[in-house]
Every structure is written in C-alpha cells, then in structure tokens.
Amino acid sequence: MDDGLKSELTKQGIYVVKLEQLYNWGRSNSVWPLGFGLACCAIEMIAASMARYDLSRFGAEVFRPSPRQADLMIVAGTVTKKMAPQVVRLYNQMPEPKYVIAMGACAISGGPFKQGYNVLKGIDRYIPVDVHIPGCPPRPEALIHAFMTLQRKIDAQKVFGPDRAHHFDASKPSEFPIPLFGEHDLVPAKNPNVWEPAVVVR
C-alpha cells in the first residue's frame, strides 16, 4: 500500500498498519521495568515512577519484583564488581524480548569511581545496553527521555525477516556469561561479543 492511500485513509479515520507495527506499538507501550536499584540513581528512578513525573503515562509503572515478569532492566546506579555477576544473572533470567537502560554516570562508565579498584567501568561490558543516560544522577526527566528513546527503538525493530531484532532470532543468545571473582578483577574483564574498548586515535 502506497503512502498516499494510507494518508488518505488516515484522514477518514482508518489506520492501516503492518502486524509488526501493531505488535511493536503494543509492547512499546507496556514495558515493565525490573524493580532494581543499585545506588542514588534509584531514588531518581523511584521519583520518575511516582505521581509527580508519572512514568505510568508510558505504561511502565508496573515495576516487577521478579526478573521473570520484567521486560526492562534499568541499571540505576553504581555497579560494583561484587554486584556485577548478580546484575548479569538477573538479566539472564529475564524473558525475551528484554531491554536495558544504563542510568547515570556510574552505570555507563564507572562515573566518579572510574579510577577506583572496585567499581565496574560500565555495565555494557557484560550485557547489551539499549539506552545510556549520562548524569550524576540524571533527573527523572532524563529517565523519561531515555524511556521514550527506548520506545522509539522498540517501534523501529523488525520482528520478521533476516534483519530482525536478536530477541526474535533463535540463533542469537539469550544468556550472557556471568563474570567470576578472580584474583584481582572480574574474570573475564569484558564480554568481547558485547563490548570492545574504544580505539583512541592520536
């Protein structure tokens, strides 16, 4: 169906969409986050879910206490190396399709603790992160913006065909290796399938 006819029908109140678009529209408007806070960013996440910022406008107020019922993991706060295996394990236990928002400077890069010995320098070293939010901590508006970005990402995902999202591809993994406590650091220090260090061009 060409765009002109579609636009003409829309004016008459008839909406023509693909099954894929309908499906994505439904699931992008009912993303259930995992009730899971790690540090001070979690306070902002809680504020975003409460009446003043009202995340329920986006169908996402249902914070689930179990990873089995959640679609979205908001990594809100500092991920210490002690906590990183548990975070990856929780992500592995979430059913597909699942998304990750890394919230705050610590979750995306280690933040003010980047030079420290005990803080993971970004959760994207172990699990695929869909949206990164900078800020220390990001305001609830920033989380809402990240949420809308994620909704646009879900809306644009392919469900069928060879270039479909990895959630719908049986050959793509659903679980990611959980790092172990080594002598000095987590082993392995990163998942090379998910993250490679940026090459600095000098």
Partner: peptide, 15 residues
Amino acid sequence: VSPAKPGEIKNSTYE
C-alpha cells in the same frame, strides 16, 4: 515470532 530460549540460569529456581 518469539523463539523459546531456555537456559540453565534462566530455568534456575531462585530468581
């Protein structure tokens, strides 16, 4: 659409 992807960690009892 959605292929089942069970795994040892996903199927573990404690969550």
